[in-house]
Design a protein around this nucleic acid. Structure first.
Lengths: 337, 337
DNA sequence: ATTCTTCGTCGAACCGGTTCGATGACCGAG
DNA sequence: CTCGGTCATCGAACCGGTTCGACGAAGAAT
């Protein structure tokens, strides 16, 4: 079941089998035929560890995901799926590493154990120790999201600030005067989670530019929190007529709160934000929102990573996507009175 | 950066470094100290491929998931998360393999390339070629879900038939007389997807036992399909007053259909089934449902797999979980008239 | 007929670990 | 003083591939 056995049965040397398989040196057609017959008969496939050891590369990519305790959002799930698919298209495997705490062994195994040829990092913070760690280990990596000062690193991201800005302008055009940003959990914001901070910045700038009254709340990533959060903001700021959100997980709760308050969307209240396409369409009514192109980002991240692995001294590249806002039916003119 | 370099700097042989690290033979305290100092200074960690080659095991588990094109349901996501976490708790990594088509390279790489010590297979069919393939490759594996004739294989599963039976009895107790089972997509059913078939069997038995009129529909795993499906079944069978479902993805559509028809849950219509806990609680109103204990199943699958790897001639084991039905607020007495 | 290429193949070294048998130093017992 | 037994360490073989230099045979050029 190893290459020596194949060589023996085909009556050639091990190296000839290797060359016949890789095609890196010419082998006579007759010999190739004989080797292929033996391989087909025995169902041989090279041992991945041995090959990795000899070649110095593993044909495996590492994907660092948030730990399962923190439930993956739909957008994150989209990243994982598209990264796995894109890798499979290149005949690469994907090694999953749950990380988020700092001192975790799984991440260290990936980084220093040479288990992977490169790493894709998601859910990164403005100051992320893992980025630092990967840089100094000189292991190729691409982040989905970007640190505050990306310097010489490779990344792909969605322009949260720009998208939120566009959402605000959309609401302003519809006549809304007091709007709220429903962000993610206070812990994430405190930890320096980029999308939350960049969307807050974009929100404040845009509301200022259009002369709107801006309100902001943090909300844990759960339906229950969305419910509580929405009810509180309604009593605290009764003048709010529209919300912009980046918190997918809170949406079911927001929906329940709207229903409970007898508010109809978009007649009595407008709702928009940056939301995974599937969730936006599952909402009732379907949400006017900037759909995060998770599949594109994942594929792009793999492409960049492969480019970096192929030429490790290449100039760092990045991509900042700004998807269009899909007009569905959750935003309307400011209610009178 | 390899073991020879460490040995050289510590002034010992490579084998001594190996023994100092593994503890498989006694090494003097002074030498251990010296070696550890050098290792700490250089940040050395053994090359995973070399170790795997020498030891004959990779310290990696394979997890075969449905391809990303078919979106993961919440329950499946729960499996993935808990498997990854459980593996990490044992210092094992997880290699992801998207599979579902039959002739896919990723799965074959995993099986024959000795990349993993064992495999966890999810979303399996009553007759699943992958189970056959793994058996003949004599690679340890555990399935989440089970084939029709599990024979000598290891598996964990939820008793869909039993759970659906309990749901039906619950509805019968509330006085419902005509109920519908909303299953998953017709393709999945046709392919022989176990949970769909077993829940259908349980549904038919239980409705027969209680003298209820049984209706069944297949529904694609999308909100839009849920909407269309529900509206059709209401016109086709106007007497239906309650639904049992195993299709999480269709729920938002069902909800919209209920709303559109002006039906209030549970006053006008009762809804229950086998649903991930988070989704059941996010529904409006929260669903009375059998929560799939995805986290338990994932952890259990890893435990069984490790037991099998440790003793490859061990007697096959399996676990069939039957979680309790959580009474929330989506079921009520049959509406009069 | 001899030399030069080209082609196909082989043997050996190497990747970086683990593991086994052997060896030498040191100890206490006889 | 010698013998037997630990204890700590070493050297070599091995895991299963890849890759490099070399070599023999056949054909082309001289």
């Amino acid at each position: 079941m190893n290459i020596g056995e194949i060589a023996r049965r085909a009556g050639v040397s091990r190296s000839t089998v290797s060359y016949a398989l890789s095609g890196k040196r010419p082998v006579s057609a007759a010999t190739v035929q004989r080797i292929n017959d033996v391989i087909a008969e025995l169902g041989y496939r090279p041992n991945a560890s041995a090959r990795a050891l000899a070649e110095g590369r593993t044909r495996t990519l590492g994907l660092v995901v948030p730990p399962a305790s923190r439930r993956l959002t739909d957008v994150q799930l989209g990243f994982v799926g598209s990264v796995v698919d894109a890798a499979a298209a290149h005949d690469l495997d994907v090694l999953l590493s749950p990380s988020g705490g700092d001192h975790d062994r799984s991440f260290e195994r990936i980084v220093t154990g040479r288990r992977v040829d490169g790493v894709i990092l998601m859910e990164i913070l403005l100051e992320d120790p893992r980025v630092e760690r990967l840089s100094q280990a000189s292991l190729p990596f691409v982040t989905i999201g970007h640190v505050e000062h990306p310097g010489a690193s490779w990344w792909v991201d969605v322009d949260y600030g720009g998208l939120i800005t566009r959402c605000v302008h959309h609401l302003a055009d519809l006549g809304h005067e007091e709007v709220v940003l429903i962000s993610r959990s206070a812990e994430l914001v405190a930890a320096g989670y980029g999308p939350a901070l960049r969307s807050a910045t974009g929100f404040l700038e845009a509301t200022a530019e259009r002369g709107l009254t801006a309100r902001m709340v943090c909300c844990a990533d759960e339906a229950a929190a969305g419910l509580a959060c929405f009810e509180q903001l309604r009593t605290q700021w009764p003048g709010v007529t529209a919300a912009v959100t980046i918190n997918e997980a809170a949406l079911p709760g927001v929906q329940r709160a709207l229903h409970r308050a007898g508010l109809e969307v978009p007649r009595d209240f407008s709702l928009t934000g940056v939301i995974a396409e599937r969730l936006a369409e599952d909402f009732h009514p379907p949400l006017t929102a900037a759909d995060v192109p998770a599949a594109d980002l994942g594929r792009l991240a793999v492409d960049l990573l492969l480019a970096q692995i192929a030429d490790r001294s290449a100039e760092p590249r990045h991509a900042l996507l700004e998807p269009p806002i899909s007009l569905r039916s959750s935003t309307g003119a400011r209610p009178r009175g």
